[in-house]
Amino acid sequence: MHQQQKLAQLEEEKIYSLITELTNPANREQALVELSKKREQYDDLALILWHSFGVMAALLQEIVSVYPLLSPPALSGQISNRVCNALALFQCVASHSETRGLFLNAHIPLFLYPFLNTTSKTRPFEYLRLTSLGVIGALVKNDNPEVISFLLSTEIIPLCLRIMETGSELSKTVAIFIVQKILLDDMGLGYICATYERFYAVGTVLSNMVNQLVETQAVRLLKHVVRCYLRLSDNPRAREALRQCLPEPLRDATFSQVLKDDIVTKRCLAALLVNLSDNVVTTN
């Protein structure tokens, strides 16, 4: 027992010394590597990162320092790794219930948007977008209305939509997860269905994804697409529009083989089709 306590104490001292290194630009890169590896092992890391003097400021410098390499695209693998390790620490802060609100309140997620706005297909950029989406994903995970209302006041939806169309499969999955979480919130659904242009933008991207999924059969992505459509069908006007524009592959048996073992998604799809077939209730 005593031995174990001693080890825990040593480990804690190591964490503190790594966090101290973050505030020194010369030692930051190595400290970022080691801390992002340890972030799962230490529950209070988010609290220490936030409350330690200068650490958030130093991490913000890491983010902003790569802006000049975004356009024209000039991000090397090593620099991308480095900034992604800083993003991993932001993700840790975004995940923790006691720091999430502080992180939002300081508007730090907005400094990640220039990363989401890049379009280069190279690995360093793909990795940068995926990791940045991960931070936003961590924010929306807990269905917190404050998070959704913050995100709706920003450009996150168009950014996610573009990644859903052009990103790697993994990025697409995180991006649609964020959009799905926004839709699941009542305010989010209302926002997206408030104008035809917004609904159309989301609907077009979802429909393009369905057509791609006929080829790729990526089941993980398909689940999210079905969930998004089902949720859209909760809104009367969107439901009306979807009766006209739900992609054919979702109506016929195109995906029955892929969804064979996925009862939940099969049920969602069935519920969606039931919602859309209901012509009587909406007439008034």
Partner: peptide, 12 residues
Amino acid sequence: YNTAEMPFDGSQ
């Protein structure tokens, strides 16, 4: 380099 239109209403 390539520019991609933002698919939402209006420019970001």
